[in-house]
Design a protein around this nucleic acid. Structure first.
Lengths: 156, 156
DNA sequence: ACTGAAAGTCGTTGCAT
DNA sequence: ATGCAACGACTTTCAGT
């Protein structure tokens, strides 16, 4: 399905998607049009989902971040979908994962300061239906972000 | 420091950094060269940290993901820096945050399958010096990823 | 600061292998 | 699935306001 050239291509554009098509083609020793078609194909099958600029949240004035563990009371059937939709529409929530373990969901929230976080909890999260338990861990430091998927180049 | 045009610009390129400079300029009602210099300036001050392609991990064959909570025994002074360097160099680790609370670090690990995860724990994480406690929560679903920083456009 | 135009580069398509 | 060639669109620079 993915050959080594695709994997190398994905490695490169994960790290820097502003490499020009010509630069990528040169790096991979293929023609520009072949490279371009590979990228289009990877987009078409949904493997590449988008291209995004990364921003330093501290320089941008978002100095407060927290990992929030949320558990739901699973009584009502649509509690989950209501929750998930609310999460997806709330801009302060950067990522959310449903997990096994003590909490049902792990959220990462980024805001300006502790007041904005308090407001987030009081006005958004706590009032959501079916919230059983919330535990917030304040982020002291972003140690690593945006690691790229480790494609294994076979052979060679 | 950031005016409304900068904020709108950042909103746009967070969502799609392959919008052309000409498209951005048209959207913001400024000239192409002005738009280009704004972007360069935001890169120069370190606010824009990079441009990355996002990849669907499941389609790419990375079907297993976990949130790993790690606590360190803080006896030795350089335990932390050894740990942090190891984390940054390990490709399976997508993100890592130092937090308050029960665990010192929250890691998100993405691998092919449960065997690769077991190998990650046995061969990489457990042998690291100063590891006091590890708790793994398997990711059942990526509910939301790559949310963008919610810049507030003032006025208007 | 911003704009407009010029020059060079790049993306994208069509055709052939 | 690949490479070559050509056109139009784009980025990037520079001079002018």
């Amino acid at each position: 399905m993915l050959d080594n050239t695709d994997k190398q291509l994905l490695e490169l554009i994960q790290k820097d998607c502003r490499l020009t098509n010509a630069q990528l083609a040169a790096e991979l020793n293929i023609s520009a049009s072949s490279c371009w078609r590979r990228i289009k194909s990877l987009e078409d099958i949904g493997l590449i989902t988008g291209y995004h600029a990364s921003i330093d949240r501290n320089i941008a004035g978002f100095a407060f971040s927290a990992i929030v563990h949320v558990s739901l009371s699973r009584q009502k059937a649509d509690t989950v979908s209501t929750f998930v939709n609310a999460i997806r529409n709330r801009p302060e929530i950067m990522d959310c994962y449903a997990t096994t373990g003590d909490a049902d969901y792990h959220l990462r929230v980024v805001v300006e300061d502790i007041n904005a976080f308090n407001k987030f909890l009081d006005e958004f999260l706590f009032p959501l239906p079916g919230i059983a338990h919330v535990k917030s861990n304040i982020v002291l430091k972003d140690v690593k972000q945006g690691g790229h998927l480790p494609f294994k180049i076979v052979g060679r």
